[in-house]
Simulated scan of single mutants.
Amino acid sequence: MERITEKPSRYRHLEKMNVRELLENMNREDQEVPAAVARAIPQIEALVNAVVPKMQRGGRLFYIGAGTSGRLGVLDASECPPTFGVSEDLVIGLIAGGDRAIRHAIEAAEDSLTQAWVDLQAYEIDEDDAVIGIAASGTTPYVISGLQACRARGIVTGCVTCNPETPLAANADFPIEVVVGPEFVTGSTRLKAGTAQKLVLNMISTSIMIRLGRVLDNKMVDMKLSNVKLVDRGAKMLVQNLSLPYDEARDLLLKHGSVRKAMEAFSLEHNLSPGL
């Protein structure tokens, strides 16, 4: 396989560049990322279409990865409950080396050929669930072995990688290959590859949640009211859609705990059709 993520940077002698040159050159490289993601949309679509029915029937989505890739999976999973009001065990991010690896490098954790399946088994994973392996290189043993174990047990698998024709893609039912080219700093896949992976994970989780009915119109009606800003946002949704005074809308929101529940309660009380 061709390890494009390991190819030399197109730029030489970075240490001789001034700050403006560094920023402009990194930005120039970053502009290639959205185009690479766009080319992968058919692959992303296929994966989402495979995962949605699983989750509609009560299945869960798992991300597995190591290093930067693992952290991005944990990040995306952790943002689903507050954004969409789902339970914390619906989208689960696992990183090689465990939660400590989110902040600290765990030596050789990504090289294990058995630990990913051990980590997944802790959640009693089965064929109702789906697993997405994330690895910029497409060669991370922790991730590949995890997908192999899942496929052997009939669990749907996908992957996100930034190299073509990788062992990871070969072991995924629905591979996503976002080839962004060499990094500005040679081999530093926290840059373009990491950005590409973040964009793809955003697309996967957001489109899944929309298909699961967790968004009405373009609003996060199930978001958790975890701070003043979000309470204010929710109250303003109710003001706009129910024609209520702000204070009354805020009280209704806090009473019922979410925009959706507040709208349903108001509509029931006033014999209206709920919706935005």
Rank of each mutant, 00 (worst) to 15 (best):
G257V: 02
S9F: 14
A105F: 13
A101I: 12
G70F: 15
E15C: 12
I125K: 01
S205I: 11
D119E: 04
R20K: 14
F184G: 00
M1I: 13
D30I: 15
G73A: 06
Q31L: 13
S87F: 15
C150W: 06
A108V: 12
T166M: 09
K229E: 12
E183R: 04
D247T: 00
A38W: 11
H256G: 02
A96V: 11
A122I: 02
L90Q: 15
G234K: 10
G154P: 09
S226P: 02
A152P: 00
R151H: 03
Q115V: 03
A149H: 00
L120E: 01
S273K: 09
V86H: 10
R12L: 10
I144E: 00
D232G: 06
P81I: 11
A152E: 10
P8L: 14
Q240L: 00
A152C: 00
D99C: 09
P182T: 05
L168Y: 07
G158W: 12
V231M: 12
A169S: 12
R71I: 13
Y123R: 02
R153L: 05
V215H: 09
P53M: 12
K236R: 13
I155H: 02
G194M: 05
T186D: 00
I92G: 02
S9R: 09
F266Q: 05
G70E: 08
K7D: 08
S9A: 14
S87A: 15
E177S: 04
A122Y: 02
P182G: 06
A152S: 04
L14I: 15
A235C: 09
P82Y: 12
V33N: 02
G194K: 06
V180W: 03
R3Y: 15
A136N: 06
K255F: 00
V131A: 01
C162R: 07
G73E: 06
D111I: 10
I41S: 10
D89G: 05
P182E: 03
G133Q: 06
Y142K: 01
R260F: 00
T166G: 05
I4W: 11
R233Y: 09
G98W: 15
I208H: 07
G98D: 08
N18V: 08
E29W: 06
G58K: 12
N163P: 05
P274W: 11
S69M: 12
I134S: 03
